[in-house]
């Protein structure tokens, strides 16, 4: 009786389409992580409207929490990016943070990853295409977010420091050298600039791989821990007891990792922004 409930949801690297389409059907793009991104953004929008329905000077509980989140993010970003840039960059960075955080924590709800189409295996029903799957556990989503940020980063830094300033940031002679020394070191700094460009080009990859890797590894960790009793083919009732008790600490770990990865994504994006939009007067000659 017990073995029918075992669900070994092995996550595949790419997010399969929810509706198992035979041929080229219209809903091919609706993968389970895209569906969850709709659900998550709908939840965020509903919560935001709920909090800002009637704004009172003495805030109600929802509004109070919402204000705390927005104010905290504003101060954090301002402390990194500087008061001038924060007005421009706050909306994108805060949205990225909130979306990643909510989708990471949404992934810890019971239904995600364990309900869906699958096949009967001797070890019980195995879910092959779960309906719900955390959006950040899908490389497309994290890469999309990272690329969107890089486009904005390029636009902001060029509009902030100008094309000449932007190129000077990368290839310019740094360290306040002047005169003959500067001329002598130009080829060196050109080479440094090339390395700088390579590292800038790799930033979206590292941002997206870090977020994707952490969340994907967390999902796999949880599903392995849940099915640990079954894998060690212990007797059913021990396996059932293990599958309930073992994952509990890992759920707390996942809550922390979800928050940490969202914070890291936000911090790194604002640090990258600050690096390339800092005006000359701050560097000091």
């Amino acid at each position: 009786m017990l073995d029918s409930f075992f669900v070994a949801a092995a996550l595949t690297l790419d997010a399969p389409a929810i509706i198992p389409s035979s041929g080229e059907s219209f809903f091919d793009w609706l993968s389970n992580s895209v569906f969850v991104s709709f659900v998550v953004s709908a939840f965020i929008i509903w919560f935001a409207r709920q909090a800002t329905k009637q704004l009172t000077v003495v805030p109600g509980p929802t509004q109070n929490m919402f204000e705390a989140v927005v104010q905290g993010l504003y101060d954090l970003i301002e402390s990194i990016v500087g008061s001038h840039m924060v007005a421009r960059a706050f909306s994108l960075l805060a949205t990225l943070f909130i979306f990643i955080l909510v989708s990471n924590w949404f992934a810890l709800l019971p239904g995600v990853g364990s309900i869906g189409w699958g096949k009967d295996t001797p070890a019980g029903f195995e879910v092959l295409t779960p309906i719900l799957r955390p959006t950040t556990a899908d490389m497309n989503m994290t890469l999309a977010m990272a690329c969107v940020f890089m486009v904005f980063w390029l636009y902001w830094s060029i509009s902030e420091v100008g094309i000449k300033g932007f190129l000077d940031h990368i290839f310019g002679v740094k360290g306040g050298l002047t005169g003959f020394m500067a001329l002598a070191l130009i080829p060196v700094f050109l080479f440094v600039g090339v390395i700088e460009v390579v590292s800038m080009a790799f930033r979206p990859m590292s941002l997206s791989l870090r977020l994707f890797g952490n969340v994907f590894a967390g999902e796999t960790l949880l599903s392995t821990m849940i099915t640990l009793g079954k894998q060690l083919n212990l007797p059913d009732w021990i396996a059932y007891a293990l599958s309930v008790t073992i994952p509990v600490p890992f759920y707390f770990l996942e809550i922390l990792v979800g928050l940490l990865q969202a914070t890291v994504f936000l911090l790194l994006c604002s640090v990258y922004l600050q690096l390339s939009t800092s005006h000359d007067e701050e560097e000091g000659h």
Binding site: S206, R210, G213, L260, V264, L268, V271
Partner: peptide, 9 residues
Amino acid sequence: IIGMALAEA
């Protein structure tokens, strides 16, 4: 946190 994130990457 930034340093650890870069190392963990």
